[in-house]
């Protein structure tokens, strides 16, 4: 039932009785007003400093509209084989880089976690090492590795390894620190050594977590691997940048679509694998 029309006929009277609620005093509103003013002020400053202008935005949008019409229909324009090969390279870079990073991070994760192996000094060093690897973007690592091993997908693999090594070390050590200690204590109480405690008390708990983080990163790195091609570290990104710079918009649309489809496919597969692995562990 809808409210009757005279439901609020005494609105003025209600407002008078609850003045502080209907029209809160300025002092109460001041913090919110100030925050909004600061946010907007900073935005205006940013827009002037970054040379935003409506003329530029307008002409840009018109251009963008033209590009969008040129993108339909997407077509590989006779380069389908090249593109799919490059896409395969991108996926290969992502899988290989993520996996090697995870393998290398496995021991580091134990070193960086509190109270498993190694002392405070070793832990401190491992953590700072992983922090500094993470502080630099994958794309910057790609640039540096290109200087070392030359242009090509190998530089991309190395760039993913370097930046993900830091990330995995952090994620793995957090998983280890949150693991239940009781199984390890049980192993020690039954006469196991420290190595036994880690192998039979800790690893069965953390391995499924590691595996699902690794699978998730493969998906996320497929997207990163698209980008590192732009600076010359292999994969589909190189073609994408080239097609954009030469205004081949139907090819650009084609590449974007196959990349999106690939990411969706990898997402689907990794969910399947994750369920299979974790289900098996849970049942065991």
């Amino acid at each position: 039932m809808s409210p009757s029309p005279d439901f609020f006929t005494d609105r003025a009277e209600v407002a008078a009785r609850h003045g502080a609620l209907v029209n809160p005093p300025l002092m109460q509103r001041l913090p919110a007003v100030l925050v909004v003013a600061m946010v907007l002020g900073l935005a205006v400053l940013a827009m002037t400093r970054l040379e935003f202008s409506f003329a530029r935005l307008g002409s840009g949008l018109v251009q963008l509209g033209t590009f969008l019409t040129l993108m339909v229909p997407p077509s590989p324009g006779g380069m389908a084989i090249t593109f799919f090969k490059a896409l395969g390279e991108t996926v290969a870079i992502a899988v290989l880089g993520t996996t090697l990073a995870a393998v290398l991070a496995f021991p580091l994760g134990f070193l960086a976690a509190r109270g498993v192996i190694g002392g405070a000094v070793l832990r401190f060093l491992t953590r700072r090492f992983s922090d500094s690897l993470r502080g630099v973007d994958t794309l910057i690592w790609a640039l540096i590795w290109i200087n070392v091993v030359g242009l090509g997908p190998f530089a991309g693999v190395l760039a993913l390894i370097t930046s993900d090594l830091g990330l995995f070390t952090k994620m793995f050590s957090e998983a280890i620190e949150t693991a239940d200690r009781k199984p390890s204590e049980g192993v020690v109480a039954a006469g196991g050594s420290r190595v036994h405690a880690i192998r039979f008390g800790l690893i069965p708990q953390v391995l499924p977590v590691f595996i699902s983080q690794w699978l998730y990163m493969i998906e996320s790195n497929t997207r990163s691997a698209t980008i590192i091609g732009i600076v010359g570290a292999g994969g589909i990104g190189l073609h994408l940048a080239e097609m954009i710079r030469t205004y081949e918009w139907d090819r650009v649309a084609f590449i974007v679509l196959i990349v999106l489809a690939t990411v969706a496919l990898i997402d689907f597969l990794s969910t399947k694998i994750r369920l299979a692995v974790i289900g098996e562990r849970a049942a065991a």
Partner: peptide, 10 residues
């Protein structure tokens, strides 16, 4: 990728 396209447009 968006940036690459927008650089051409804007």
């Amino acid at each position: 990728v968006f940036a690459l396209i927008f650089v051409v447009a804007f």
